[in-house]
């Protein structure tokens, strides 16, 4: 046995080296631009419904170069990734990198002068502003899209037809939360409530905490997860569960979940492309931002990228599951540049 492995081993080593070399070679050819990569273009599978992005308006015509570092919210990441991907086709000489340190982590790096642009799923906090000021980092923000926080229950839940903002607070808040559904509303059954919530580090949590819970925090017996897919699975598998997360995750799991229309005084409204866009789905539709360092914006490639961003984000945000702002708001954001 030993001997056989040993004999095999010699050939195996050569094979291993060959594989590694081949891998490096395969990856090393064909330059570093664009998603298309090497010689053979990927045949797009029909399941992804890849809408061609031929109609995007061009940015500037001259070839630029340089690095643009972006970090921040994982919620905003798909939008910025889409923009960076399209921009890479436009300006292959500019190397755009995007990280996912979270909104808070992103601001920490941003105010330390380490990044040029920060993705944020909430406005910058006062203490973060102070940190930026201390380091002399000046910035401006651009609103780029809406995300509709969707409150969902299990598919088999037949009693929740809508919830008011007060009822939401009674279910989720940390101080004396409702233990059973009939404590929320008398007509609901006396079943225990199981709560699923994004983790306290996420901008999604921050927004919900601020708008619905008056900053009191989510109840401690909730199941917290940084991964929204875990929340989806949790609510889909538990008859008495309720949870909330970004609209894109509801959109992808429509057949497994039941969305709860929210009543903030003007009648129940369910989140949808239209109700989020026209502001009816309030208070749970929230804007997401990018923060641009003024010093970085002086650089031609950053200026060009930011312009490209605001010109194209409408189509690209919709493509990755977010809701674009109304046209006049984009015009207002463009006015800031």
């Amino acid at each position: 046995m030993e001997k056989r492995i040993a004999r095999f081993g010699r050939g195996g080593l050569a094979a291993l080296a060959a594989v590694l070399l081949a891998l490096a070679a395969a990856c090393g050819t064909g330059g570093g631009n664009g998603g298309g990569g090497g010689a053979a273009p990927a045949s797009p599978s029909p399941s992804d419904g890849g809408t061609a992005s031929a109609s995007l308006p061009p940015a500037s015509s001259s070839a630029l170069s340089g690095n643009i570092e972006i970090d921040g919210s994982s919620t905003v990441y798909p939008i910025t990734e889409a923009v960076a991907e399209e921009y890479g086709k436009e300006q292959p000489g500019v190397r755009v990198t995007v990280g996912v340190s979270g909104t808070g982590g992103g601001f920490k790096r941003f105010c330390n002068g380490e990044t040029d642009i920060s993705n944020a799923s909430r406005p910058i906090k006062d203490e973060e502003k102070a940190a930026c000021q201390e380091k002399g980092i000046e910035f401006f923000d651009l609103k780029i899209a809406f995300d509709g926080l969707s409150v969902v229950v299990n598919r088999d839940n037949d009693f929740v037809d809508h919830l008011t903002v007060e009822e939401l607070a009674r279910i989720f808040n940390a101080e004396n939360p409702a233990k059973t559904w009939n404590e929320v509303r008398g007509s609901f059954p006396a079943e225990p409530i199981k709560v699923y919530s994004p983790g306290a580090d996420s901008g999604t949590f921050d927004y919900f905490n601020e708008e619905i819970l008056g900053k009191k925090g989510v109840r401690q017996d909730a199941t917290f997860s940084e991964d929204d897919n875990t929340l989806v699975t949790g609510v889909a598998g538990d008859r008495n569960a309720i949870g909330f997360f970004g609209y894109a995750y509801y959109e992808e799991n429509k057949d497994r979940l039941k969305v709860v229309p929210i009543d903030a005084g003007a009648g129940p409204v369910a989140p949808s492309f239209d109700t989020i866009k026209n502001g009816q789905y309030s208070p749970l539709s929230r804007p997401v931002f990018i923060y641009v360092s003024k010093a970085a914006y002086e650089r031609p490639e950053v200026k060009d990228f930011v312009r490209f961003y605001i010109d194209n984000v409408k189509e690209l945000a919709a493509e990755v599951g977010y809701i674009p702002l109304p046209d006049e708001e984009y015009a207002a954001e463009q006015g800031k540049l």
Binding site: A26, D48, G50, E81
Partner: peptide
């Protein structure tokens, strides 16, 4: 093969991890 020849992309059909 696209998994190692393509760069990340917003479209899953074109995304790779080169």
């Amino acid at each position: 093969p696209e998994l190692v020849t393509n760069h990340p992309s917003r479209r899953a059909s074109q995304a790779g991890m080169r």
